[in-house]
Design a protein around this nucleic acid. Structure first.
Lengths: 136, 136
DNA sequence: TAATAGTCTATTGTTTAAGTAGACTTATTT
DNA sequence: AAATAAGTCTACTTAAACAATAGACTATTA
């Protein structure tokens, strides 16, 4: 299961995708429409900015907005940016890999099964982009 | 990512699958071979017993063992037993379903994407059984 | 009846999620 | 150019879930 943080990030990115090209969007607007705790959302958006997905503008008329077209960012990229692993186990994760203490990956049946599910999941998440998150 | 508890449960079940039909296996033996904190493992095995997957015997010569043949339990069933959701979001989970606060599932793109990944994952995990977790 | 091994209760530590307070920046208005 | 309003940024606190540990208790076998 994705963490709340990751879920909120995806929701927020979807909202911003729908407003792409229309200038900065207020944090409070995103929070209200997507039912996200505003202070938690602040830290998430800030992190996305530091990862060069969002840009922000301060002061009156400010807010957050996508740097690139929504079609340029895949869901797999978005999930990884906010620290959400996609694989079900560390030993089959690409970005959060950790070796198992107890098993030989070449012969471990669990490893094999989880590798297959990871690949199936990635196949989907690497094709979908933020544009697909726009409502309607 | 599956919780530690779920990971440990799968490892332990895999170990017991390899010893199926050979009588009770000590908690300590499983813990040692699978590098699982023994006290944590105790609670996990007890839960699996209460869910009618394992049986136990107390006293000397005691231990835990699988009730049914390893081929009878799928990985999807095993994961769910110890409380591990398979879907990436609550709104696409079969056993841990929760409605989103902010979205209409019929039109939500995120819901659609996550449904697809859930189906792809389930297709694999419902075919694999505990027998596949046996090493070698 | 002594030793073995599972069962139960309680407690501690760690991470994640959420909420609070306030400082800092920028843009507008006058 | 100064005041103010609108917004982001930083640091700290609280609450809940998850992971791990410790020890007493109960049942079984030899």
């Amino acid at each position: 299961m994705l963490s709340k943080k990751t879920q909120y990030a995806l929701k927020a990115l979807g909202y911003l995708a729908g407003k792409y090209g229309q200038g900065p969007v207020l944090i409070s607007e995103i929070a209200k429409n997507k039912k996200i705790p505003i202070k938690f959302l602040e830290t998430i958006l800030l992190e996305l900015k530091q990862n060069n997905v969002l840009e922000s503008k301060k002061g009156k008329g400010g807010g957050y907005y996508l740097i690139e077209s929504p079609k340029k960012t895949t869901l797999a990229q978005a999930i990884r940016l906010v620290g959400g692993p996609i694989a079900l186990l560390p030993c089959v994760s690409i970005n959060f890999y950790e070796k198992c203490k107890d098993c030989n990956e070449a012969t471990c049946g669990l490893n094999k099964a989880m590798l297959q599910t990871r690949d199936a999941t990635l196949k989907i998440l690497e094709k979908k982009t933020l544009a697909e998150l726009i409502d309607g």
